[in-house]
């Protein structure tokens, strides 16, 4: 298991190679990564991601442990960046390794749903006219219900 909250970019290829290299029980790896996209007005200059340093690692570890237990994962990886990110930059990635694909897919979705609304990160969109904090979406909150 690896959890990293970092300023720097990451190499998905390298991460997955390292992730999936020695356990012969693993038959399925699912990975997801999020990218900084433009807003509807196409005016985004960059994004600032703020975090609560003491809590992020703790909160993510908590949900990774739940996922490992619930879907019998052999490995799990979460990387989340903070600080200033430009259009097209990678924001975060999640990877899960299981014996079968169903467990890998479901646990990756579970981790994504919880990262979105339970890990202490806040996105700020900076445009030429100023900035605004990204509002949480009700859909993100209700997405958690299917896991309870």
């Amino acid at each position: 298991m690896r959890i990293s909250v970092q300023l720097n970019d990451f190499d998905i290829g390298k991460e997955l190679k390292f992730f999936n290299n020695d356990d012969t029980n693993i038959g399925a790896v699912v990975s997801f990564h999020g990218i900084v996209r433009n807003n509807y007005e196409k005016s985004l200059l960059h994004m600032d991601i703020e975090q609560y340093p003491g809590m992020t690692q703790k909160a993510i570890s908590n949900y990774v442990e739940i996922a490992v237990e619930r879907w019998s994962l052999y490995d799990a990886l979460v990387i989340h960046r903070h600080g200033k990110l430009l259009l097209g930059d990678q924001i975060m990635m999640v990877a899960t390794a299981a014996r079968h694909r169903r467990d890998a897919f479901q646990s990756a979705e579970f981790l994504m749903d919880y990262l979105k609304s339970r890990a202490p990160f806040w996105k700020k969109e900076v445009t030429k006219d100023g900035y605004q904090w990204v509002k949480s979406v009700l859909d993100d909150e209700s997405a958690l219900e299917r896991w309870t």
Binding site: G34, I49, Y52, G54, M55, K58, A59, H80, I91, M92, M112, L115, K116, S117, R118, A119, P120, F121, W122, K123, W133, V134, K135, S136, E141
Partner: peptide
């Protein structure tokens, strides 16, 4: 709100709290 880095409610007691944080709903991912 979070007490000692764990989410809680507004009616949670402050007993044992060394750190309390206030923030908008998270928007990570």
């Amino acid at each position: 709100v979070a007490i000692n880095q764990e989410l809680c409610d507004f009616d949670t007691k402050l007993t044992g709290a060394t750190e309390i944080a206030f923030f908008p709903p998270m928007t990570g991912g």
